[in-house]
């Protein structure tokens, strides 16, 4: 547990010191989202209807941008090797890295999402569901991403490889993430918003739990392979 917290605090310190990484992800998120009205026209109803999809797709791409760096610095400066040799639990180390990644990527994206929803004229009743869906979905993105990040350590063209490995696995999160917000927007009464989006949120939670189970195991196995 202490080792776990050590990794989390160290990673947080590092990324807070170079704030550019966090800002880059959020900036990318907002910038790409604002491109869509230029591509599709400023019609408010259309924008409101496609807002959930755009928020999720751009969030997914922003997470993707940050994945390559998730383990690469530690791999290059040798601290991963120390970690493997130290006989500490690699599974919990992977979880710690993922938690730090989520705190510096998923959480800021979650905070920025309502801003985009506002720009896209999204119904304000659905904002709560948007936040809950992001809170349940973005951790899965970090977890699944960590598997690809560890598997590609030391690979040629690792940066190009990660999107290819990760995007197919992101599709369920995307579907239910968008589905939850859609359901909230389609509910006729303001009070029924949560009830309407419940199944989608439930599946998002289930995907999170499955990822939480698989990612540490696969990530640790990949780290051991990378260090052999």
């Amino acid at each position: 547990m202490k080792a776990f917290l050590n990794i989390v605090t160290r990673d947080l310190h590092l990324s807070l010191r170079q704030r550019s990484d966090i800002i880059m992800a959020v900036l990318f998120f907002i910038l790409t989202a604002t491109l869509f009205p230029f591509g599709l026209g400023p019609e408010p109803n259309l924008l409101a209807r496609i807002a959930p999809g755009i928020i999720w797709v751009t969030a997914l791409l922003s997470v993707l941008l940050s994945l390559e760096r998730l383990f690469l610095a530690d791999y290059e400066d040798g601290s991963l090797e120390q970690l493997v040799l130290s006989r500490a639990s690699l599974e919990s180390a992977v979880l710690a890295k993922v938690l730090a990644h989520w705190l510096t990527t998923g959480l800021p994206l979650m905070a920025a999402a309502p801003l985009i929803a506002l720009l896209f004229n999204m119904d304000s009743d659905a904002f709560l569901i948007l936040i809950i869906a992001m809170a349940l979905g973005t951790p899965s993105l970090s977890l699944i991403g960590a598997i690809a990040a560890t598997l590609t350590l030391g690979a040629r063209r690792g940066g190009v490889l990660i999107p290819l490995l990760v995007l197919p696995l992101y599709i369920p999160t995307l579907i239910f993430g968008v589905g939850a917000i859609d359901a909230a927007m389609n509910s006729l009464e303001a009070g029924a918003v949560l009830a309407n989006a419940k199944p989608q949120l439930f599946f998002l939670g289930a995907i999170f739990l499955v990822s939480l189970l698989i990612a540490p195991l696969a990530g640790a196995a990949a780290l051991r392979q990378a260090m052999e």
Binding site: I147, L151, T152, G154, A155, R156, R157, G158, L161, L164, L165, P168, L169, I171, P172, I207, V210, I214, A218, A221, A222, Q225, A226, E228
Partner: peptide
Amino acid sequence: ALMNAFEDQERGNRAAAVLAIVGFINVPII
């Protein structure tokens, strides 16, 4: 792509094996 991404073929095979298992678990979810 992952299988052929490493200088060391052994490592490529092993990484691809982990990916295949993760992918297989995800197939029903997808």
